[in-house]
Design a protein around this nucleic acid. Structure first.
Lengths: 125, 125
DNA sequence: ATTATACTTAACCAAATGGTTAACTATAAT
DNA sequence: ATTATAGTTAACCATTTGGTTAAGTATAAT
C-alpha cells in the first residue's frame, strides 16, 4: 500500500462523492470556466455552487483565480492522479484474481454443466 | 462521460473517503476476514466497525456472510472497477494534456532560460 | 456617481456521518 | 442449563454536509 497521503485521499474521495462536484469536474475537463458558467446547468443557488467549488479547491482538484470581477476555475491533475494510483492497486488485485480463475478453469476443464453458484452479480440501482 | 451509475458512484466514493474503510478494504484484499479480525487494528468500538462495514456493503464494495456465529467479509470487484473507470477518464485527459505539452515543447524549443510561470505545484499536506 | 454584475460570506436549517455505551441475538463451549 | 463469544441494533451525541436566503464586496458599465 506504499505511501499515500491519507488526508488528501480523504478529501479527494469525499469531493468526488457528490454528483454536482463530479459534473463540475467533467465540465472543467472541457476547458476553464467562470463560476457563473459552472453554476448554470444546476438547479441550485450560487452560494451552493460556491461551496462545492470550495470543497473541490480544498481537495486540490481545481484552482480559482480572480480576473476582473470574474473567477476563472481550472481542473488540476494531482489529486485525481493520486486517487487513480490508489484505486489502481485494487484494479491490479482484481486482474490477478481473474487471471488465476482463468488459469484454474483452463487447467480444470468443466466435467459437466450446472455447477452450483447462481449468484448472478445483481446490478441493483 | 458515457453512462456511469450516479448513485452507485456517490456511495462508492463516499465509502472510500474514510481512512478506516480504506484500511478495511486493504486488509480484505489480503483475504477474507471476520468482523473481529477486521476490527482488531483499529482503536474504535465494534459498533463503529459494524457501521463502516454496513457502508462498505451498501456501496457493494464487500459482502458479509454468516458462518456459525462468525461473519466472514470479502471484498467485491464491481464498485471499485466502476470508480476506476470513472477516474480513468480523467487520467486519459491528463495524459493527453501532458502529451500535447510535450509535443509543444518539442516543436518550440526554449529560446533562453527563465520563462515566467513559477507556480511550483505546492504539494501541501 | 450610480447601478448592474459576479461572485463570496454569514447565518441558519435539516439530514447524514462517525463515534459512543447499553442492550440484544445467535451460536459455541462448558 | 449456563456462560462466553461474535457480532448487531438502538439510542444518543457532536460535527459535517448540502442546501437555503440575505447581506456584503469588488469590478465593470452607464
Amino acid at each position: 500500500m506504499v505511501n499515500y497521503n491519507v488526508r488528501s485521499l480523504n478529501r479527494t474521495f469525499a469531493a468526488l462523492a457528490d454528483p454536482t462536484r463530479r459534473a463540475i469536474l467533467a465540465r472543467l475537463a472541457e476547458g476553464e470556466a467562470t463560476v457563473g458558467v459552472l453554476a448554470d446547468p444546476f438547479d441550485v443557488s450560487l452560494p451552493a455552487i460556491s461551496k462545492h467549488l470550495r470543497v473541490l479547491e480544498g481537495a486540490g482538484l481545481i484552482t480559482r483565480r480572480k480576473l476582473g470581477r470574474v473567477r476563472r476555475c481550472a481542473i488540476l491533475p494531482g489529486p485525481i492522479m493520486a486517487a487513480d494510483a490508489w484505486i489502481n492497486h485494487y484494479r491490479q488485485f482484481w486482474e490477478r484474481q481473474f487471471d488465476s480463475l482463468e488459469s484454474y478453469l483452463d487447467e480444470n476443464p468443466s466435467p459437466k454443466g450446472g455447477e452450483d453458484d447462481e449468484s448472478a452479480d445483481d446490478p441493483n440501482d
